[in-house]
Design a protein around this nucleic acid. Structure first.
Lengths: 248, 248
DNA sequence: CGTTGGGTTGATCGACCTCAATAAAAGTGG
DNA sequence: CCACTTTTATTGAGGTCGATCAACCCAACG
């Protein structure tokens, strides 16, 4: 039993042409939760004008850390991992991008991390220049962007607590619950938590090793906090998991 | 020999009245590096109108995590620690605010961390409402705020790498160099790195314990990478420290 | 049906934490 | 200015959690 439809984690199934004419902004399913929200119709039309809809297969690089940031992206479905690599090869995942997330919020001249699709991913691509011009024209958009960046900053600070002060069990529990909350906002799922990423991804996000992550999952399953299902986990005792995550 | 004037770390010495009429925005020394930069004169006058200059002694709380965010702050001198506390008491410092830093970038309804002065600190305080109104009126200001938030986000992501993937020595070396770079931007100091915060603060910032931080300092001193001086360190071999920090 | 990538489990090791003692600063009051 | 306390920093000894190394399982796939 798949956690969340397995194999169709919100990404469109079937073929995935590099460029899709696709749906227009007005009918975008992700609109209610992404930066486009709260834009007037004329603003939305303008945004639509500079957008290019792109769909990528799993394990494709959207952009590399250090690349000139000529484009910014709006994820409309699927999942991407965002990571930085230390000169000697160690990897740190700084976030997983889901439906509604915006890539390139920092608005620096170079991308500060690499973005790689985990599942099939569809995004709206904007030329940084175009998007920047538009946000200069429509204060709504800039305000929305600021609000998003601020929210991301708060999440990043939370993750610092996770990485700096929680032990392995707490980190994994926190991760599962935080991801559950995100899925809930996207598709309403509450007890089934899809985990399209690998254990290594989770480890690289939580500052642990694959083995440790795997062991904690097993321990949680043994303690009847959750059940490991293909493609994710099903929460059995969310309340105790909250305690295990040091969130309560 | 103090690292940077010791006892006067950019904070004004002498008395520190809670409310200071102080300098006006036009003559603010921090202006070139804070959000006020690039504002037109009339915008600056407007900002000046809603600002209240405040000066606090060391170890004063500016605001608490969870407090309604009725005010936002612009640090004009001194240092503050920004931290979150896990329910059971563990503390994680998410950043040190220096001259030019803006507190409350996330622009959420509640503060996401506690801000406490390390040295004497002077700030410009703005009612969140006022500041928000003003940034609605002056796109420059909102753009500047967005740019600041984006920059903070990039720094937070860097810190995730530090906390998730670097060992104790690398963390401390990285910390010293990153702080050195910040001082350089503020006052040009290059080899003397002021450390007004305690070892415990550094430990809580780097996800370590006081003892480990202290040991690493001693080891670095023994290896002639730096010299521990009252109030900070003097860098002896910055190049080797860069290597130790996994930055090169 | 062999190969490959991902996941789990076990045994051992070591980096950092914990506990403890001491030293050095920084206040504090006489 | 000097005793006295309190806070901060350093150093040592020993313990522990998560890393490392290694074996094995399983499903997907050509």
């Amino acid at each position: 039993m798949a956690a969340r439809g397995q194999g169709d984690d919100g990404s469109n199934s079937g073929s995935c042409p590099r460029f899709t004419p696709g749906v227009r902004c007005e009918h975008c399913l992700a609109r209610s939760i992404n930066v486009c929200h709260a834009l007037e119709l004329d603003e939305l039309v303008a945004l639509d004008g500079i957008a290019r809809r792109i769909c990528v297969e799993p394990h494709e690089i959207l952009f590399h850390e250090g690349d000139a940031a000529a484009e910014v992206f709006n994820v409309t479905s699927g999942m991407a991992r965002l990571f930085k690599v230390v000169p000697d090869g160690r990897r740190q995942i700084v976030g997983f991008a889901l439906t509604g997330d915006f890539l390139g919020l920092a608005m620096l001249d170079r991308h500060e991390y690499t973005a790689e699709s985990v599942t099939k991913v569809s995004v709206c691509e904007y030329k940084t220049r175009d998007f920047s011009d538009l946000s200069g024209k429509y204060p709504h958009l800039l305000q929305r962007l600021q609000s998003f960046t601020g929210h991301e900053l708060a999440i990043a600070h939370e993750q610092m607590v996770v990485l700096g002060r929680l032990n392995a069990e707490e980190r994994v529990a926190f991760f599962i619950l935080a991801l559950r909350d995100r899925w809930t906002r996207i598709d309403g799922s509450k007890t089934n938590v899809a985990l399209p990423m690998t254990r290594l991804d989770i480890a690289d996000y939580l500052g642990l090793t694959v083995e440790t992550v795997s062991r904690v999952f097993s321990r949680f399953a043994r303690q009847k906090l959750l059940v490991v299902v293909p493609g994710g986990v099903r929460l059995v005792d969310p309340a105790r998991l909250e305690i295990a995550a040091a969130r309560a």
